[in-house]
């Protein structure tokens, strides 16, 4: 079997209890692997630890125990994390807080290029315009401020910003949760297209099993800081083995399910 591109092994995360309370175990001995070119879904309800796990994998949260490896090598030093972040990028859930409120879209998209000196300053506007086109926004957006954009547009810009560095892996934390259904479909379609075009590997985190089913090749179901079931999406959704997975699937509203009898 090939080496995973990014791997979290035996991750535990414990938050100290507040005011002498019990410490909170956000993650208990969780492992996760992402292989080249696949879309991995992390699904679970609030408090399952899926966001914490993803944040540990990009280094904005540190694991209590366990380690993250990138291309087979453990990530330890600051320099290691820096190298990881050249190839792994992250998109946040809330499009309203993930963009700096005082920075224009063009500047926000050009910033990664400036930081990593990827191209001469004179070429930056050109690359920003190309990226805006790729995510389906007009070039005039570059002059706008985040407050002038809709939620869906902001989420596209966040996605674009993460893609400016041409990463190989994208971690998406609930990126369509706050969006309307028709806009959510637009962002999902964009994500599928980008994944194909750029050969991205994706970790896609969501509480919505319908979105996970649509997008993912492989799924890990999380509950209270543990992975309770994992496998290819078709298997997990069509023949779930774990009781919790089954309950979760049953709770999803479904227009095609037979109407519940009124006397229930």
């Amino acid at each position: 079997m090939s080496t995973p591109i990014i791997e979290a092994s035996a991750i535990t995360k414990t938050f100290p209890g507040r005011r002498g309370g019990q410490p909170f175990h956000a993650l208990r001995n969780v492992s996760s692997k992402l292989f080249e070119g696949e879309i991995l879904g992390l699904v679970g309800e609030s408090g399952s630890g899926k966001t914490t796990l993803s944040r540990i994998m990009i280094g904005i949260e540190t694991a209590t125990t366990g380690e993250v490896s990138f291309q087979g090598r453990p990530v330890q030093s600051r320099a290691d994390w820096k190298a990881l972040r050249r190839d792994v990028q992250y998109v946040f859930q809330d499009p309203f807080t993930a963009l700096c409120p005082t920075m224009r879209i063009g500047a926000a998209l050009a910033e990664p290029l400036a930081i990593h000196r990827l191209c001469p300053a004179s070429e930056r506007p050109e690359r920003v315009a190309r990226m805006l086109e790729m995510i389906g926004l007009g070039p005039e957006m570059a002059r706008r401020l985040p407050a002038q954009l809709s939620g869906g547009q902001r989420q596209r810009v966040s996605l674009a910003r993460a893609l400016m560095l041409e990463p190989r892996v994208l971690i998406c934390d609930e990126i369509v949760s706050g969006l309307d259904v028709s806009v959510q479909a637009q962002v999902l379609a964009l994500l599928v297209e980008l994944q194909r075009k750029l050969g991205l590997s994706l970790i896609f985190i969501s509480h919505d099993l319908r979105v996970i089913r649509y997008l993912c090749d492989r799924v890990q179901v999380m509950l209270l800081g543990q992975i309770v079931e994992e496998g290819p999406a078709a298997q997990v959704f069509d023949a779930p083995e774990n009781d919790y997975t089954r309950a979760l699937l049953a709770a999803i509203p479904d227009r095609d399910r037979l109407p519940v009898s009124e006397s229930a």
């Binding site: 809709s150 479909a185 637009q186 999902l188 379609a189 319908r210 979105v211 089913r213 699937l249």
Partner: peptide, 22 residues
């Protein structure tokens, strides 16, 4: 709206059809 909303049976083999525009 119905074609935009994934169900437990839709996968990306059969792409969603988003409503264009805002």
């Amino acid at each position: 709206l119905l074609r935009s909303a994934p169900t437990l049976r839709t996968t990306r083999e059969v792409p969603l059809q988003p409503i264009p525009g805002q």
